[in-house]
Amino acid sequence: MIVALAQFSPVLGDVARNLDFHLEYVEKARRAKADLLVFPELSLTGYKLRDLTAETAQDPRTSKTFATLREASRNLALVVGFVEETPREKGLFYNSAAFLLKGSIFHIHRKVFLPNSGMFEELRFFAQGRTFRAFGTPRGRAGMLICRDFLHLNSHYLLFADGAEISITISAAPGRGVSGDDGFATSRMWEAMGETVSRLTTSFVVYCNRVGFEDGAVFAGGSFVFDPFGRRVAQAPYFDPDFLLVEIDPADIRRARQTMTFKRDDKPEVTLANLERIVHRDED
């Protein structure tokens, strides 16, 4: 199975131009015989939208942009990032990821953990998702996360417990912290977590980050793929655009889970019982 990551710089607020970029990458991925093409967070709109959030929102079931993307997903799974607004919840905007394949929407994940401190202000503009759910694909069970979701322990556990074999994270992570080392300090944080999560969940961990500048923020790139043994099988450069291709073997999931039996030995009911206690407990 060939995975492609489009580490690129979306144009802020310009859905039409970004759609063109998407179609160019789809064509590249098609030529490379890729099975899955992953774009970064908010790949159709750019990240620092502020009041452009409402102006760039899409209903993926009816929008022309998504009709084009669904058409492009006939023979290639696509993960795209966008601002979601549906007729049922007018005026509520979600930072969402869509998994498209065979012309249909397999799954939509709405970002749950919206960063809202320091340089981030997502809660000011976005509604919060409530669900982590793995979903079936012809190539196995997948789960999606968006940027900050990845940095919360429970997101990974829920996808793992729900049977995900490949977790796909789309990201618009700015680089922060320059020292004597190469790249940003935050890039090493993402990589360390990617490795750890792939080991803990014996799953493929696919991470696609964007590059470019928005209002001075520097998106750090450094997209990567870890296999279920915690081996880094692909790594894009920091900071520069890249089209990363990697062949992964889904049979590695079975091999890894025979060796490290975390999935077999997991006890979600113990987790649940303890969470019930922790969430509802009276004061000690």
């Binding site: 320059v178 020292s179 004597g180 080392d181 190469d182 790249g183 470019g212 500048f213 520097v218 900071f239």
Partner: peptide, 19 residues
């Protein structure tokens, strides 16, 4: 306080160019 000057140069030249 120490910086990787080559990395910083790369970011700042790209910033100037892109802006």
């Amino acid at each position: 306080m120490k910086i990787n000057a080559a990395f910083v140069e790369k970011i700042l030249t790209a910033f100037i160019k892109e802006e």
